[in-house]
């Protein structure tokens, strides 16, 4: 039935070819259970409604243009950043953190203050606290780099954006792809 429901979803989203759609519609006509499933799915889908986004104000692009110009003047313009460099840097950072964890035990032992360690137990990398935080926030698996940033900059709650700007977000959904 799950396969059928996925096909129904494809039908609803217009992903099927004309021929496939016609075949499925014919099946829906003759199958009460399938028809009920389709009606339920369609009703849920069509009930989703959000307001049309506001038109972008005229000054929006000017503001961005000015900011980009400023970046350029500060020498922060577009610079090629080869992927291999980022990969090597990320690997080095992760390796360093793993070694730090293995050699130093917990973050608190590695020199963080007790106050920081009290921040919701994020920094007790004993597995349990981090997992409970992940489950609570539905954050998906936190990378070691993320835990590191959470621990050293708890005031600003920085994440390692450079690692995720282009990469898809991770999820903990069962059976789904974990990019």
């Amino acid at each position: 039935m799950n396969h059928d429901k996925r096909q129904l979803m494809r039908l609803l989203h217009g992903e099927l070819t004309t021929e496939e759609a016609a075949q499925l519609e014919a099946r829906i006509e003759g199958d009460d259970e399938l028809r009920a499933a389709y009606e339920h799915l369609a009703s849920t889908w069509h009930s989703l409604e959000l307001p049309t986004p506001q038109p972008v104000p005229l000054e929006f692009s000017n503001k961005i243009g000015a900011a980009a110009k400023q970046q350029l003047e500060l020498g922060l313009g577009p610079l090629p950043a080869p992927r291999w460099f980022r990969t090597v840097a990320a690997t080095a950072l992760s390796t360093g953190i793993i070694l730090g964890l293995l050699l130093g035990g917990t973050f608190s032992e590695a020199g963080l203050t007790a106050d920081s360690a009290l921040q919701a137990g994020v920094f007790q990398v004993d597995g349990l606290k981090v997992e409970s935080l992940q489950a609570e926030l539905d954050l998906g698996p936190l990378s070691l780099a993320e835990i590191y940033w959470l621990s050293v900059d708890d005031q600003e709650l920085l994440f390692t954006e450079s690692a995720t700007d282009e990469a898809p977000a991770t999820t903990t959904s069962p059976g789904g792809s974990v990019p």
């Binding site: 980009a68 970046q71 577009p78 090629p80 950043a81 282009e166």
Partner: peptide, 10 residues
């Protein structure tokens, strides 16, 4: 957009 500006070369 500012990220796009910085990353255009990548």
């Amino acid at each position: 957009f500012l990220k796009v500006f910085r990353k255009a070369g990548t």
